Amino acid sequence: MSAAPPPIPADLLKPPAGWTGPQPATEGAWVDAAWAEKRGRLQCVGQLLTIDEIINPAQAPQ
């Protein structure tokens, strides 16, 4: 019988929002949308790395 997987906090399973505003119409709005998307992608990568650490903890040095 295998052990149950470790619990993953719910906040790590919530997808980042990214850009949620209207379709950008100006250069400034496009910049805001691009930064929002980048922040969302970076947050997502961080969440995935944290989930990986929970599921696959590093082996203790011997």
Rank of each mutant, 00 (worst) to 15 (best):
M1N: 08
M1F: 03
S2C: 05
S2N: 04
A3V: 09
A3L: 13
A4N: 09
P5F: 12
P6Y: 03
P6D: 04
P6C: 05
P6R: 11
P7G: 07
P7E: 13
I8M: 09
I8P: 12
I8R: 13
I8H: 03
P9C: 05
A10S: 13
A10Q: 14
D11N: 12
D11R: 07
L12E: 02
L13G: 04
L13D: 02
K14T: 15
P15C: 04
P15S: 05
P16F: 06
W19R: 08
T20Q: 14
G21V: 03
G21S: 08
G21K: 06
P22H: 14
P22S: 11
Q23V: 13
Q23K: 14
P24M: 02
A25L: 12
A25Q: 15
A25H: 11
A25E: 15
T26W: 00
E27L: 05
G28S: 10
A29L: 06
A29V: 00
A29K: 05
A29Q: 15
A29C: 01
W30E: 05
V31I: 13
A33I: 10
A33M: 14
A33R: 15
A34N: 14
A34F: 00
W35F: 12
A36G: 08
A36H: 09
E37L: 00
E37H: 07
K38W: 00
R39C: 00
G40K: 04
G40L: 03
G40P: 05
L42Y: 02
L42E: 15
L42W: 04
Q43N: 05
Q43W: 01
Q43A: 14
C44H: 14
C44E: 15
V45L: 13
V45Y: 02
V45K: 11
G46K: 13
Q47N: 12
Q47V: 03
Q47A: 06
Q47H: 13
L48V: 09
L49K: 09
L49Q: 12
T50A: 10
T50C: 02
I51M: 14
I51F: 02
D52G: 02
D52L: 08
D52E: 10
D52N: 09
D52C: 06
D52S: 07
E53C: 07
E53P: 01
E53T: 07
I55D: 00
I55W: 00
I55E: 02
I55R: 12
N56H: 15
N56T: 09
N56I: 01
P57Q: 06
P57W: 01
Q59N: 05
A60V: 15
A60L: 12
P61Q: 09
Q62A: 11
